[in-house]
């Protein structure tokens, strides 16, 4: 479904992503892990079209995305959240989600229905009239997911949506991802919470200093000596 080919991103004096190649198959939940500054979010920005890679290309369902911006990529079915949340602060929670539904060509009343249903699903329903700016951070992260979901994506890129959640909330989030996955949604998930990602991912990609270190099933990854050495000095979070 998603085919990242030899992507390199150079910032001034810094190679953020270094010849990364991987694929995500239809229906998979793929984890993307790596230490801080490994280039995970940069890779998301390349896939979602926020930045153009220095070289390499991204294919989605066999289509080359190079010439498409974020809006068009979203319309093809790629949704994303932002690690540093970006709510439409002055809008209500409901309107935030309505924007996502509207770009799918729904009428305003249909979009509002979709938005309500999505909010209920993420248990944000009772906040629909809340000014988004005033939501606590954990709820703003959920709003990110709701907004992206309302665009009806085929592939959803989640950027650290479990940071700062308590164990119960993490479990709920994992359950939701699995439920959506069983309905056919494909996931690529950046997560710092290792134990959480290991529980749901079918495949895990490990990024280090911009390059893909290794990939494989969670059970293999956690025992990989290379991965362990990369994470040495940085505690592997668990809950």
């Amino acid at each position: 479904m998603l085919d990242v080919q030899n992507v390199t991103v150079d910032f001034v004096g810094l190679r953020a992503v270094d010849h990364a190649s991987f694929t995500v198959e239809q229906g998979q939940i793929v984890g993307l892990i790596g230490p801080n500054g490994a280039g995970k979010t940069t890779l998301f920005n390349v896939v979602s079209g926020m930045i153009r890679p220095t070289s390499g290309s991204v294919l989605f369902e066999g289509k080359d995305l190079s010439r498409l911006g974020p809006a068009d990529r979203n319309r093809l079915g790629i949704g994303r959240t932002f690690q540093v949340v970006k709510p439409f602060g002055g809008m209500t929670v409901l309107d935030n989600v309505v924007v996502g539904a509207l770009t799918r060509g729904q009428s305003r009343s249909d979009a509002r229905e979709t938005a309500r249903a999505t909010l209920d699903r993420l248990r944000l329903g009772r906040f629909e009239n809340t000014v988004a700016r005033s939501l606590p951070l954990a709820l703003r992260k959920r709003l990110e997911v709701a907004r992206a979901l309302a665009t009806g994506p085929k592939l959803l890129l989640l950027d650290e949506i479990m940071g700062g959640l308590n164990p119960t909330e993490v479990n709920e989030t994992l359950a939701l991802i699995q439920e959506l996955n069983s309905e056919g949604l494909t996931f690529l998930v950046i997560e710092h919470n290792m134990s959480a990602i290991m529980r749901i991912a079918e495949k895990v990609l490990v990024l280090n200093q911009g390059a893909l270190l290794t990939e494989g099933p969670p059970a293999v990854i956690t025992r990989d000596p290379q991965v362990i050495s990369v994470y040495l000095g940085e505690p592997i979070e668990s809950t």
Binding site: S48, G49, M50, G69, P70, A71, N74, R75, G79, R80, F82, K86, P87, F88, G89, G90, M91, V99, G100, T103, R104, R147, A148, A150, T151
Partner: peptide, 10 residues
């Protein structure tokens, strides 16, 4: 309110 977020939503 946020151009990047809006673009990412299509």
């Amino acid at each position: 309110e946020d151009e990047d977020a809006a673009r990412s939503l299509g």
